[in-house]
Write a protein that binds this DNA or RNA. Structure first.
Length: 885
RNA sequence: GGGAGGUUAGCUCAGCGGUUAGAGCACCUGCCUUACACGCAGGGGGUCGCGGGUUCAAAUCCCUCACCUCCCACCA
């Protein structure tokens, strides 16, 4: 099976995804004798499209799962989707509007049918895109937040929380989104600075000639005012206690109340109090037992309670009319420009209207305390750790969670109302009828916040509340990979419900990723038009390149600037791997492959191997150790860097070059035995190390390695993840080889500096003494090949040769006599080097002359400096001698 | 108002107490050396935001300041 010269990821990626699915290798067992490892996918919107954030998170999740699977774990990556209440409902509603109809016209039942049809139509998209990414999900366990099992879990959770008194129904001030027609939670409100006005309005004090001035940014709410407040210590207003203000336009008498939450220094120090339309005023009103008077309706328009003059007007129009009327009455004292924060609906963008409404609330304070504790005592680990403070602060100040939504698409609240307005909470209608003692019941029309069902995701997907084998096997899960933007929306709530219902944290580690930004560090957004679609990147460069790029850029606590050029660079890495494999496996005239009849070895006795073989095996073992450690530490960026450097910088740049003279017969087989086996073994293990990041390419090549079946009969996905081999590691061999490589680099540099063309036949003279010279003598044929030399001579060079030195070895380059290009003495280059060397020598001398350094620094460091100084001096004298010629 | 993070090569970022600060891309020079031009070899480029301090030694630890991101927060 020869390899195509062209590196084309598309030619094999789809094929392997299909093959893996057919093999069923990602399907997990429960129960299992193997240790389990489990990751739950953060369920994407069922009708959505995967964006770069998903691509990043999927890459990291898949990397972890593939790694653990190769380590022999029963590794489950459970896929699924979210019904995404508001988002999906809005999409369907928009479609209806285009068809000239509406949600209201259809009615609840027909609308839900439409939405389910919509869901069915788009559902396959997510799987298709995850398949493109190479995701190794167990699709037999796929879940959807609205499927029967999860719905049962949702009802169970609701019933239990209600029984415990943690879920209650009540009238409270909520964040109302007039455009969406539903209440939303605090988290769904986004504060945005708005340039508004601060209106100063004069009120009369009843029964005295006194006039007071209140300041407000929302004059239209005055129609619902029920008090005027000031700070208890405010000398200016103390005398007003017991008195009443007359509300302009309305004439209502408003009591004065003193409250410590009022800021003395803002405005006039007097606050108009509208308990029905401001959270601050609502709380204040509660403390003082003030009446609540709603004047703005759910549609954002003024109600009849606002008075005949204003009823029916939009909020903005009412404001204008109120201001106009006040001005006409001479009560508008002053209008100032004023920038302040206004809550906006995250989903629809319009200003939130705080208003009183009957909703379901979940008291999460107890669960929050446990979630906070879990993070503090290390049961739950956040990565990066810096999120700990944010976590603690949010949970310590948590408020009741408004869990009901006035929508249709979602889990309908399992509460049934009797005719008299009382209700029962139950798991089903049957249970409700039994509890209520009547079948004249109507279920609460509202649905639950989408995040309520997502909060149960880690265990509801495994069958909870049933004690299933899956739950016993995979729960608690191990790692959660998600974006920090849903830390509160989702992560915190999963931890809370997990602790509450299962007494366990649902996952021990949360890896929070940054945001994927564009090449210029800008947030990707549709309006900016800089959104990069993962599918198009896969189309262009392949999934492996995308995965490698994302994993490599995932530095903790940082956003990820995705530069297509950089990604092209990692595609080139794939090309490099492809071609390295081609070199190794290329058929020759005599053999089926360059490596002859060699096969991948599962163990290798290194004792009889040559120096380059010892070197690469030692480097391989250390890379394996490093990669394993970095994966364990969630440093995918460093692991990938390591792999990149090993494969390209060591295996390709050096070791393959070391092999060429052997294959060419320039170096005797006897001196470098079993090169083919070593090369294949290194390639096999390197591919296995890379597999979690680049699954397709590694499988495609690995399948072609002679002898791979002995590692695993079917697939690299199940082949063991390489572990370090202590017997292969050798500082001594690494050091010896490193100095040979250093010499090769120096010789090449000299050649370039002296402009000795590659075609000019050149001799290298080596003289001196020491271990390096011995090594070089042994490796002479190799050095000759790597430096493209005509010959290597031992002994003093003829006069006039180019001289340098390294570790006790003097070396000189001598171009063939009569060569076309004379060795142009590049004086400038040499001078520059000499100056640099002199500076370095001076610095080293100064350091060593410093007594405190010599006495206080560790001996190791001092020794290192001494050795370096000696080396620098030697080099300097050689170069200076050369320059003097 | 609280909190987190950032400021290192032209760009995007690693490094976070030890000798000569790295990578990818970009740039310069020379090469199609039969695995790879998605390449090879060699090279240029940084007073590590400013100012102090601790230390034999500071991008690295501490403090001040400046500028940039982001999160949380009931000054109407």
């Amino acid at each position: 099976m020869s390899m195509d010269k062209r590196f084309d990821p598309k030619s094999y990626e789809g094929h392997w995804q299909q093959r893996w699915a057919e093999m069923g290798i990602f399907v997990c067992e429960a129960p299992s004798s193997r240790p389990s490892f489990c990751i739950m996918i953060p369920p994407p919107n069922v009708t959505g499209k995967l964006h770069m954030g998903h691509a990043l998170q999927s890459t990291l999740q898949d990397l972890l799962v593939r790694w653990k699977r190769m380590q022999g774990y029963n590794a489950l990556w459970l896929p699924g989707t979210d019904h995404a209440g508001i988002a999906t409902q809005l999409m369907v509603e928009r479609q209806l509007v285009r068809e000239g109809t509406s949600r209201a016209a259809l009615g609840r039942e027909a609308f839900l049918e439409r939405t389910w049809a919509w869901k069915k139509q788009y559902h396959g998209n997510i799987r298709r895109q995850l398949d493109l990414m190479g995701a190794s999900c167990d699709w037999t366990r796929e879940r959807f937040t609205l499927d029967e099992g999860l719905s049962m879990a949702v009802r169970e959770a609701f019933v239990r929380l209600h029984a415990e008194g943690l879920i209650t129904r009540g009238e409270y001030i909520v964040n109302w989104s007039p455009a969406l027609g539903t209440a939303v939670s605090d988290l769904e409100v986004e504060m945005k600075p708005v340039r508004g006005k601060l209106y100063h309005i004069a009120y009369d004090v009843d029964g005295s000639g006194e006039r007071i001035v209140v300041a407000t940014t929302r004059p239209e709410t005055m129609l619902g005012d029920t008090a005027v407040a000031f700070h208890p210590d405010d000398e200016r207003y103390r005398h007003l206690i017991g008195k009443f203000a007359i509300l302009p336009l309305v004439g209502r008498r408003l009591p004065f109340v003193a409250d410590a939450k009022v800021e003395k220094d803002f405005g006039t120090g007097l606050v108009k109090v509208t308990p029905a339309h401001d959270a601050f005023d609502f709380e204040l009103g509660r403390r003082h037992g003030l009446p609540i008077l709603g004047v703005i309706g759910r549609d954002g328009k003024m109600t009849v309670a606002a008075g005949a003059q204003f009823a029916g007007l939009d909020r903005e129009a009412a404001r204008a009319l109120v201001v106009e009327t006040l001005r006409a009455e001479g009560r508008l004292v002053k209008v100032e420009e004023h920038e302040h924060n206004v809550g906006h609906s995250q989903r629809s963008g319009e200003p939130i209207e705080p208003l009183i409404s009957t909703q379901w609330f979940c008291d999460v304070s107890g669960m929050a305390a446990r979630a906070l504790e879990a993070e503090k005592d290390g049961t739950l680990r956040l990565i990066p750790e810096s999120w700990g403070k944010t976590w603690e602060h949010w949970l310590a100040n948590i408020k009741p969670w408004c869990i009901s939504r006035q929508l249709w698409w979602g889990h309908q609240i399992p509460a049934w109302f009797r005719r008299d307005g009382t209700f029962v909470v139950a798991r089903s209608r049957e249970e409700a009828v039994e509890l209520a003692g009547t079948d004249e019941l109507e279920q609460d029309p509202d649905v639950l916040d989408t995040w309520f069902s997502s909060a149960l995701w880690p265990f509801s997907t495994l069958g909870w509340p049933e004690q299933t084998a899956d739950l016993a096997t995979f729960y608690p899960t191990n790692v959660l990979v998600t974006g920090f933007d849903i830390l509160f929306f989702w992560v915190a709530r999963m931890v809370m419900t997990g602790l509450h219902f299962t007494d366990r944290v649902p996952f021990s580690t949360v890896h929070l990723t940054g945001l994927v930004r564009d090449a210029d560090g800008q947030k990707m957004s549709k309006t900016k038009g800089n959104v990069v679609d993962p599918e198009s990147l896969i189309e262009e460069h392949g999934a492996d390149a995308l995965r490698f790029t994302l994993a490599l850029l995932d530095a903790p606590g940082r956003d990820i600037p995705l530069d297509p050029e950089r990604m092209a660079g990692y595609r080139a890495f794939g090309n490099k791997i492809w071609n390295a494999a081609r070199f190794v496996l290329e058929p020759t005239a005599e053999a089926p492959a360059k490596v002859g009849n060699a096969r991948v070895q599962s163990t290798l006795d290194v004792a009889t191997l040559g120096l380059p073989e010892r070197w690469i095996l030692s480097r391989l073992s250390r890379t394996a150790a490093e990669v394993e450690q970095k994966f364990t530490d969630f440093r995918f960026d460093e692991a990938c860097n390591q792999l990149y450097h090993f494969f390209w910088g060591e295996l390709c740049d050096w070791y393959i070059e070391f092999c060429k003279p052997v294959f060419a017969g320039t170096v005797a087989e006897a001196e470098r035995p079993r090169v083919g086996e070593v090369l294949l073994t290194v390639l096999d293990r390197a591919l296995r190390l890379l597999h979690p990041v680049m699954p397709f390419l590694t499988e495609e090549i690995w399948q072609r390695l002679p002898g791979h079946e002995a590692i695993h009969p079917e697939t690299i996905c199940l082949a063991p993840f390489p572990t370090p081999v202590a017997e292969w590691e050798s500082d001594e061999h690494e050091a010896r080889m490193a100095s040979v490589m250093e010499l090769v680099t120096r010789v090449r540099a000299l050649r370039t500096e002296r402009k000795i063309s590659a075609k000019t036949k050149t001799r290298l003279y080596l003289a001196g003494a020491g271990p390096l010279l011995e090594t070089l003598r042994a490796q002479a044929p190799l050095v000759k090949a790597l430096c493209r030399l005509e010959a290597i001579e031992l002994g003093s060079p003829p006069a006039g040769a180019v001289l340098d030195s390294l570790a006790g070895v003097e070396f000189a380059l001598v171009p063939e006599a009569g060569a076309k290009e004379a060795p142009a003495p590049v004086v400038a280059v040499l001078d520059g080097q000499l100056v640099q060397l002199r500076d370095e020598i001076a610095r080293a001398e100064a350091r060593l002359a410093d007594e405190s350094f010599v006495s206080k620094a560790p001996a190791r460091v001092v020794e290192g400096n001494r050795a370096r100084l000696a080396e620098l001096r030697e080099r300097y004298s050689r170069l200076a001698a050369g320059a003097g010629e």
